[in-house]
Structure formats: C-alpha cells, structure tokens
Design a protein around this nucleic acid. Structure first.
Length: 492
DNA sequence: GACCCGGAAGAAGG
DNA sequence: ACCTTCTTCCGGGT
C-alpha cells in the first residue's frame, strides 16, 4: 500500500483557511500521511504488547503468517532468533511456507527448533489470531492481509498504529479534545490502513445492508433492493433540516468525516475508548461492531477512499454534520446536495488529494465527469446543487462494473435522468454486435466508465436506437429516485 | 464575473 | 503497457 506522505501540506489554519474547521476535518489517515506535522504524537510507542512485537517484525512480512513465502518464514525465524535469543534454528527444518508453518503444532515446532518451539508457536498463534481478527473485520479493506506486503508491520508502514497511539495516548495537541471520538473511529477501523480519505463506511465495510438493519436507509429508492444507506453513516436525518444554516457546527467539530457507521451506533457520550488497539479489537463492543458492519467474505471492492464521490459522501454523511458549511444535503432522500462553500470544499478536496491548487473550477470538472457515468447530475437552475444518482454501495462497485466493460456494451449511453422516454442514437461497436440487444437491460448492468474516451459521442449517425423507459418496480437506482430505469435497446 | 459545460492532454496510481 | 480517476487548462455558453 503506497502511502507517500509527500511534503507536508499547509495545515489549514485561521490564516490559511479561515473557514476550515480546525483541526483538520479529515480522516486520521491524513495525520498519517503527514506525520511530521504531528510528530509529537506519531512518536508514541506502541501501546500493547502485541503491537510491541509486531512493530519489530521485519517490515517485509505480512501480518498474516499464513501468507508468508518460504523466504518470509526464514526471515521470520531469523528475526525470532535475534529477538528472543533463541538457539540457532536449522532453517533446513523450515523449508515451508507460512501456511505450512502455522499448521505445525507446538511439539512440531519444538522438534524442528529445539528450545524455541514454544516461543515460535506463541508468536505465530498471536499473529494468526490477529490476522483473523483483522481479516474478519475488514474483508474488503485494501490492506486486508491477504497478500504479501499489503499489511506491513512496521510502524512506519502501518499507519493505524501511530494513529491509534496518537489518539489514544494523550500527547495529542491536535485532537486532544476529540481523542475519544477519533479513537472510536480508529477502533472501528481496527488495524486497517485508512486511506485518505478513509473509505466511507460502505466502501470500507462493503456491506451497507448491515448498517441498514440498524438505520433508516437514506436515498429512499437507493436503498431499495439489497443496497444500503448512503455511506451507512446517516444515523440521523436531522441534517436534512439543518441546511443551510447548519454550517456553524462545522467550525468546531473535529473528528473525521469518514466516521464509520459502526461508530455512529455508539454515541460518543456512551463510548469508552479502548486503551489500546488490541483492547479495541478484542473488546465486546468491537466484536459486535465487526459482526454488524464488517461481515466476512464481502467481495465488494474498496474504493480506496480517494474518490471524489466518496469524499463528498463522507462529508455529507458526517454524523455530526460538521461540514454542512461546505456541503450539505438538500434532500437526502433524493441525493440532492448543495455545495455551500465551493471554494472551501475545493480546498478540502485539494488537501485530501494533495493538490493544493485545487479550486472549485477544477473540482467541478471532476464532478462533471460523474455525469456521464450517472453517478452525479446537476440540479438545473440551482447553483452548486448536484444530485447523487447512485448510492454509495453502487459507487463502490464501480470498479467491478468497469471490469465488465470488455464484456458489456461500451457504448451504451448514459440514460437521461428525466422520467420520460428518451431516444438517442449511438455508435455501435463490434463488441456489442453479438449481444442480444433486444432484451431489456437493467440499467445497472451498464458499465460505468469514467474514462475520457467513454461513450459520449452521440453524434454518430450509426444505427443503434436507445429508448430509456421508466419502470416503477425495478431495482434500479436511477434518478429521479422514485423512478427506476431500464434501457430498452433495439437495433434499427 | 461567476457559474456551468465538455474537450483535450496529461499525471498519478494500480 | 494499460486503465481509472482525476487534474489542469481551455473555449464557449448562460
């Protein structure tokens, strides 16, 4: 996982960004990305014994010993030799990968490494246990330790550790008054590497329907079917009424916008932050959260949290509505939101992406690219008003959908949001010649393509005729929200 | 002048 | 090398 910290960006201050709420309204990952700015806290040592030894493991080793290669096993053994003053281990006895080594019993290990078997066994068991916890909790996390190096152990390559410590152990001038909130946030994230911004709950947990069970779904129609609420963190509908004068709250609150929905179920006032990550992940409340929000075996992709729509969703769905002075729902049910402070929001986005020259013009260009893939549309006649056309769960799946580009029609046009039959002609491509184009095609099967050479050329004089019709009873997610769309194609 | 649109080229990361 | 997702710049329209 690359997390190039890059140069330290100017932390928004009253001088540089007078409208920005301070501290940074970003995910703790931003603190990780720019650790120099928070050195006082990032230098905190690991707080749990587990973290202690983990942080000393070779950085090349994945957290889950079961994914280690032979070389990794040897590397681990050599490290253990040094670390625990073990008797020299005969590496020939460990010509196996990590999975095989984990299958060895304590006795097996003792036989192969006389005098060291107990230690090795204990360490391995701890690592496996830890990996199991993380894996169960964050099945779709980009850093779920299912592959090598995806989850480095070094505190310098493993953001959560410093973040956690930074937040759970005082010494944090930056967020001291909100440490509990952030700690809760991090607790919910467990040992994942939170990107910047951290994925919204949906994108991180990958199963918003679990949150839906506990919350009223947002986006009315968006939640139809199996999809869940908008980013899962809409634990309150009150912010719908807060606009436009709710911006004041944004000046004070400081916890990150990507607060997981798991946390939203636990009011901060009632939440006692764990003393350490280990305690956090092993605490009953965490296990409950994990069960609720991080079900195992989620195949859904992670958005990495760096996507603009995700960023906006996080701000919009901030449980504490801290960013309503930047962006706020006008109608959450329909996905309509307004950018209250275009310049400020653009700056936030720019900071998130480390493009400090970001402005609304550029950001809005990015937003306009969402038009063609029906993620977003402009609310006509209202300045700075846009509408999400897909819920976060769908958006999260864009990557998957994109993979279908080769198989699906790459030229299927983006249907118009108007609830009427729209006729348009698009240019066919060979790939779609074989398709049964007469069938009704569910809108959501359309590939989502953000690429610049997408199916936007409607000027062609080719022969495909597209009719977009409304269907009231299809599980689509088109706009307007109460309407669902199908694409009816027919070759002329 | 601000906002909005979309084309074009390119950067950055996967 | 290719793809995705922007970022940057721009000309044009409202």
């Amino acid at each position: 996982m690359k997390l190039a910290p890059g140069p330290l960006p100017p932390i928004p201050t009253a001088a540089t960004m007078d409208r920005l709420p301070l501290p940074l309204p970003f995910s703790p990952d931003l603190l990780w990305r720019y650790p120099l700015g928070f050195s006082n806290v990032t230098q905190q040592p690991p707080s749990s014994p587990l973290m202690d030894y983990k942080s000393q493991l070779p950085t090349s080793l994945a957290t889950d010993p079961r994914v280690w290669s032979r070389e990794d096993v040897i590397s681990f053994l050599r490290w253990a030799e040094r670390e625990y003053d073990l008797q020299p281990i005969d590496m020939d006895m460990f010509q196996m990968n990590g999975k095989a080594m984990c299958l060895l019993t304590r006795t097996d290990l003792s036989e192969r490494a006389p005098g060291s078997g107990d230690v090795l066994h204990n360490v391995l068991q701890l690592l496996v246990r830890e990996a199991n916890i993380v894996q169960r909790c964050l099945p779709s996390s980009p850093v779920t330790p299912t592959s090598r190096h995806a989850y480095p152990l070094s505190p310098h390559s493993h953001p959560p550790t410093p973040n956690w410590n930074m937040l759970t152990q005082n010494g944090c001038d930056f967020h001291s008054t909100h440490a509990a909130t952030l700690a809760a946030h991090l607790m919910a994230q467990s040992n994942s590497v939170t990107l910047s911004p951290a994925p919204s709950v949906d994108s991180q947990a990958g199963s918003p329907q679990h949150a839906e069970a506990c919350q009223q779904p947002a986006y009315g129609h968006f939640s139809s079917g199996s999809n869940g609420s908008a980013s899962g963190s809409n634990q309150s509908d009150s912010d719908e009424d807060s606009f436009p004068d709710s911006g004041k709250s944004a000046q004070n609150n400081t916890s990150p916008p990507n607060t997981p929905s798991a946390f939203t179920l636990v009011p901060p006032a009632h939440y006692m932050p764990p003393k350490s990550p280990k305690e956090a992940v092993s605490s009953p409340i965490f296990k409950t959260m994990a069960r609720e929000f991080f079900p195992s075996e989620s195949p859904e992709p992670n958005t990495n949290g760096r996507l603009l729509w995700d960023f906006l969703q996080q701000l919009l769905n901030d449980p504490s509505q801290r960013y309503t002075s930047y962006i706020a729902w006008k109608n959450r049910d329909t996905g309509v939101f307004k950018i209250v402070d275009p310049a400020g929001l653009a700056k936030l986005w720019g900071i998130q992406k480390n493009h400090l020259s970001m402005n609304y013009d550029k950001m809005s260009r990015a937003l306009r690219y969402y038009y063609r893939v029906n993620i977003l549309r402009k609310v006509q006649g209202e300045r700075h008003c846009y509408q999400f056309l897909r819920n976060p769960t769908e958006l999260k799946n864009i990557k998957n959908i994109s993979l279908l580009r080769q198989q699906m029609s790459p030229n299927r046009p983006a249907p118009q949001p108007q609830p009427q039959v729209v006729h348009m002609t698009i240019k066919p491509e060979p790939a779609e010649v074989d398709q049964d184009t007469s069938r009704l095609q569910e809108f959501d099967e359309k590939p989502t393509d953000l690429s610049m050479d997408g199916p936007t050329d409607l000027s062609s004089n080719s022969s495909r005729h597209i009719s977009i019709v409304c269907s009231p009873d299809t599980p689509s997610l088109r706009d307007p929200p109460q309407k669902n769309f199908y694409i009816k194609e027919e070759i002329k």
